[in-house]
């Protein structure tokens, strides 16, 4: 049986995890950390938490530190998580971008922090369901995660009976999965639409380019405020001025970034960039048409654009 951690050991290991992934472990998460250590200790044939700390502290302890971070990372995800966000993606985000990209007929979507792949595959299925509407469009779905283990799982595309029953309508299960010995395998038609790559959100991700839509859902919740700010700042540099950032339904940029503003209800968790010029304008006193509050203005087509609201009409 694994001996309990001392407060010093918890602090040391929590710091090690944060230095790799940005994930902040609070003191009440000691049990979570403790429960995940067994696997790492077994893999590295270590017999105690103290031995693990010692091994990480050594100069060659870097890979062990990463493995620890990987095991501690929460892989909680499921197909079509937060239906309201997906509805907004299909009913607001997609139509707006299809209209705006009519000439290039190209869309780039980034699923940042994709874990075991349910979200990018859900996006691919949602797009496949559009049928002829997207005929002739080149739509790239990039899915990234810091965990190599999660990416391998995602690329394999085989999900357990439990996993395919959380959020996935049975009609889509029948259409886009085939029964295999160890679960349900996503069909090549969907798997080939998603490109999986390793990316730690703590690091520069500019090599992936700029995107029309970034899904970064239920990822920021694991970070402390300075890390959330850093990540949002990076994401703001990789999103088109008229692009969309989709966070978890209960997540917000409020108090963390002045570069995004929320779409009006009923689109919880969906944001658009505010240009530098409009950020400055929102700092001015409200003296007329040149100013406005973020995301609270509506224009004639019935859609709300925070950038337009800030710029005035």
């Amino acid at each position: 049986m694994l001996t309990p951690m001392t407060p010093q050991e918890f602090k040391f290991l929590a710091h090690a995890v944060k230095s790799c992934t940005g994930m902040t472990l609070k003191e009440d998460q000691e049990e979570l950390l403790h429960s995940r250590l067994k696997r790492v200790l077994k893999e590295y044939q270590l017999d105690s938490v103290s031995a693990l700390c010692g091994a990480i502290a050594r100069s060659d302890g870097e890979s062990l530190k990463w493995r620890l971070a990987e095991c501690v990372a929460v892989q909680e995800t499921y197909f079509f998580r937060d239906k309201s966000v997906f509805e907004c993606f299909e009913e607001r985000v997609l139509p707006s971008l299809l209209e705006a990209r009519q000439t290039s007929r190209r869309l780039r979507i980034w699923c940042a922090g994709c874990s075991t792949g349910q979200e990018p595959y859900a996006i691919a299925m949602a797009l496949a369901e559009k049928g002829d509407l997207l005929q002739g469009w080149e739509i790239e779905i990039l899915a990234t995660d810091f965990s190599e283990e999660a990416l391998l799982f995602a690329q394999k595309g085989v999900y357990s009976q439990f996993q395919v029953q959380r959020g996935l309508p049975v009609t889509l299960l029948l259409k886009y999965f085939k029964r295999v010995a160890d679960g349900w395998e996503i069909v090549p038609e969907i798997r080939e639409r998603v490109r999986f790559r390793h990316q730690n959100l703590m690091h520069n991700s500019m090599r992936h380019g700029v995107f029309d839509v970034i899904f970064c859902r239920n990822v920021l919740i694991y970070f402390d405020e300075p890390t959330k700010r850093q990540v949002l700042s990076r994401l703001s540099q990789q999103i088109q001025p008229d692009g969309y950032l989709l966070l978890g339904a209960t997540e917000s940029v409020l108090g963390l970034s002045d570069r995004f503003a929320p779409l009006a209800a009923p689109c919880p968790g969906v944001f658009q960039p505010i240009s530098a010029e409009n950020r400055d304008r929102t700092m001015l006193p409200a003296t007329g048409a040149g100013t406005g509050s973020q995301g609270s203005s509506s224009h004639g087509d019935g859609r709300d654009s925070p950038a337009m609201a800030a710029a005035g009409r």
Binding site: Y78, Q161, Q165, R166, G167, V170, L174
Partner: peptide, 25 residues
């Protein structure tokens, strides 16, 4: 599953189930 849907079922749960699955469906 196909037979069930064709006969007019709205959703399908494969046992074993838990509250999460029932709620999701």
């Amino acid at each position: 599953i196909t037979r069930a849907i064709s006969a007019g079922a709205n959703e399908y749960i494969m046992k074993p189930f838990d509250r999460d699955i029932i709620e999701a469906k």
